[in-house]
């Protein structure tokens, strides 16, 4: 399962998780059009890279629909702003709220797309690696839920088949009978799961669960390259935050839309931000290039 991961995904989970928190967090907090546009493009490019064209075709319409919805939603319900363009059912539609809606739409698009790649990259074991030490009991519970789930689906099939064998078919008979048989399957499932859970806890006890000082093992190792990536990411984030707080990049939507004038400094910050957003893609492409050159040398 760890075979087909791209270069970014093979970074240590804390770095990967940190990256997602950064890109999503900055996109949500700072509604600067350029920041959002860069974030959106970065997210879209990475999703393209991860999922390919067919993957994009499957999920992008949904994302687009939400973006359109957000772009329309704001001007209709938000009437702040000085520049009134027209009236809709006696409510003013302002230029500022349209621009704000567009920004919100970009923000939603970017966040949703980052989550698409997050769902693929941050697998449950990586999540456990990040939080295993912080919240050991919850992490273990979480890991157990993930262990039980596939097992329950299999068992539910077995139970349905067994019930069918003694005349309680979920798929034939009257509507009422089928609902009753379905609920029987669920009840048997519950009974089975809870009764067998005791065995699981015995197995935990037998292996010393509950002793003080439990550690959280993770199969992931923090390497030099993770440190480098982490430091770079952190540095970049710091630059962006300082720049925004210091007002190098500023965007006001209300009462009147106002961006501060472009300066070399602001373009530099955007470039840093762009690098952060493009890191996963760049890492992936670079490694593919290395592969290609290796194959050529053969």
């Amino acid at each position: 399962m760890r075979n087909n991961e791209d270069a970014f995904s093979t970074l240590h989970p804390t770095v990967v998780f940190g990256h997602f928190v950064t890109v999503v967090g900055v996109s949500v907090v700072f509604l600067h059009p350029l920041i959002l546009a860069v974030s959106f493009v970065g997210a879209l490019a990475y999703v393209c890279y991860l999922k390919g064209w067919s993957g994009i075709r499957k999920m992008f319409p949904g994302v687009l629909a939400m973006m359109v919805f957000a772009a329309l939603f704001n001007p209709i319900f938000n009437h702040r702003g000085m520049t009134i363009l027209c009236y809709w059912y006696d409510n003013p539609i302002t230029l500022e709220s349209i621009l704000y809606g567009l920004a919100a739409s970009l923000m939603i698009g970017a966040v949703l797309l980052w989550f698409v790649s997050y769902n693929q990259v941050m697998t449950s074991d990586k999540f456990l690696c990040v939080f295993g030490r912080m919240i050991p009991a919850l992490s273990l519970t979480f890991s157990m839920v993930l262990r039980f789930l596939p097992r329950y689906f299999v068992q539910a099939k077995h139970i349905a088949a067994a019930q069918r064998g003694i005349g309680r078919d979920v798929f034939s008979g009257s509507w009422y009978a089928r609902a009753r048989h379905g609920s029987a399957v669920f009840s048997i499932m519950l009974t089975w799961a809870l009764e067998n859970a005791v065995d699981t806890s015995d197995s935990m006890l037998a292996r010393g669960y509950g002793l003080p000082g439990r550690t959280a093992y993770t199969d992931f190792r923090f390497r030099q390259r993770d440190l480098a990536a982490g430091v770079t990411l952190g540095g970049g984030l710091l630059v962006v935050i300082v720049a925004i707080v210091a007002g190098v990049l500023r965007a006001n939507y209300f009462p009147i839309f106002d961006l501060n004038a472009a300066s070399y400094l602001s373009w530099l910050v955007i470039a840093v931000w762009g690098l952060i957003c493009a890191t996963p893609l760049i890492m992936g492409l670079r490694e593919e290039a290395v592969w290609r050159s290796l194959r050529l040398n053969l």
């Binding site: 449950s124 074991d125 456990l128 273990l140 890991s143 157990m144 993930l146 262990r147 097992r151 067998n196 065995d199 699981t200 015995d202 197995s203 935990m204 037998a206 093992y217 199969d219």
Partner: peptide
């Protein structure tokens, strides 16, 4: 114990 499935606690082999 007897039942192989019941004894497994986590979702990954290494864990």
């Amino acid at each position: 114990l007897q039942n192989p499935d019941n004894q497994i606690v986590t979702d990954k082999v290494w864990h």
